[in-house]
């Protein structure tokens, strides 16, 4: 086994806002507590003190070691949920005055999502953390070579576009399981006199035409009277609370049809614009690799982070900076 952590990636993951978040803190009441009293104190905290969902992910007791041994601290509650006077009164009512001596302490306001955040934020107060394996992005050196070849192909397509007088953006859509290029295209907005003929949209349209032909031939051979693809409800509209029926449609994602790029990778020389980024959501793309950032209208990192937006129903990993020194700067919308 090669050591994958030693491989330097030729691209960077475009993080979500959560992954990029720095430490923000919130105030809590804590107190030293004798080991023998912890059971009684925890019971008091659980039953009588205000609870907060944000405290579910932090530990209630921490151990501080020092020269004389160790001290236990107990976290009581958020300072925002009760005044100091009221809390003192509560403590008095339960005969814990002699056991608890309150002071204010800071803990991280948000749960960490990356290991780096966890290691930093955990120093303030211990946090329960389980790394989400889906966030992990490791690549073998063989895989990186394959990815590089696809990116080189996208750059080649951008060169072809330039030689035709088009905006030099190229892209390929790949099925990573078969390591097979599904479709490739470049920007054609100049020759077609159509401002929306961007490389990514062109490529998605091509995959759709390919799928449509395939599906028609299957339908022809099976049931000539009936032709149907999977359904999309993406132009819509309501939350599933308003329309519980929507869930039925979403469950159909497992079949082919409009979610046509499911599991596919796209390699594109420049960061997709907002329109193309959302088109990739509508097509359920698997992963995106791009070279240069699009400082005019980029939807995957520059202006918006459509690939990780919490309100959208499909998320995908995005990597940038891939062979960017070989890609021409582009100051226009792409």
């Amino acid at each position: 086994m090669e050591d994958e952590s030693a491989i330097i990636l030729p691209f960077r993951k475009v993080p979500s806002d959560e992954e990029e978040r720095g430490l923000e803190t919130v105030d809590v009441y804590i107190s030293d507590v004798e080991p023998a009293e912890t059971g009684r104190v925890l019971k008091f905290v659980q039953i009588h003190c205000p609870q907060a969902e944000s405290l579910d992910r932090v530990k209630r007791i921490r151990k501080v070691t020092h020269d004389q041994g160790f001290t236990l601290n107990v976290l009581i509650c958020l300072t925002s949920s009760i005044t100091l006077d009221n809390l003192k009164l509560l403590i008095k009512q339960h005969d814990l005055e002699s056991i608890l001596s309150l002071r204010i302490h800071q803990i991280s306001k948000y749960p960490p999502v990356t290991r780096v955040q966890f290691e930093e934020w955990n120093r303030l107060w211990p946090i329960n953390f389980r790394e989400d394996p889906r966030r992990d992005s490791r690549f073998s050196s063989e895989e990186i070579e394959l990815l590089r070849n696809h990116m080189i192909r996208a750059i080649k397509l951008a060169d072809i576009a330039r030689s035709k007088g088009e905006v030099p953006v190229g892209c390929v859509i790949v099925d990573p399981e078969k390591a097979e290029i599904m479709c490739e295209s470049h920007d054609t907005r100049t020759s077609s006199n159509h401002p929306l003929k961007h490389a990514v949209l062109n490529c998605i349209n091509q995959v759709a035409m390919f799928e449509k032909t395939k599906l028609n031939s299957i339908n022809d051979s099976l049931t000539p009277k009936k032709r149907k693809a999977d359904k999309s409800d993406d132009q819509l509209a309501f939350s599933s609370d308003t329309l519980p029926e929507l869930n039925i449609l979403e469950n159909k994602e497992n079949s082919a049809g409009v979610y046509l790029c499911k599991g596919y990778d796209i390699f594109v020389t420049h960061e997709p614009c907002i329109t193309c980024s959302m088109a990739l959501v509508h097509s359920r793309i698997g992963r995106v690799f791009y070279g240069r950032s699009n400082n005019a209208s980029g939807g995957l990192g520059s202006y918006y982070k459509i690939h990780t937006h919490h309100a959208l129903n499909h998320h995908f990993k995005t990597f940038n900076g891939f062979l960017e020194d070989q890609i021409e700067m582009l100051m226009i919308d792409c």
Binding site: N205, K228, S232, V258, L260, H282, S283
Partner: peptide, 20 residues
């Protein structure tokens, strides 16, 4: 979107393409 197998064929884009 269903007829074309293409989740991006929304009403607005269809109209724009037909006009151009």
């Amino acid at each position: 979107t269903n007829e074309t197998c293409n989740g991006t064929r929304h009403a607005e884009l269809e109209a724009v393409d037909s006009i151009l």
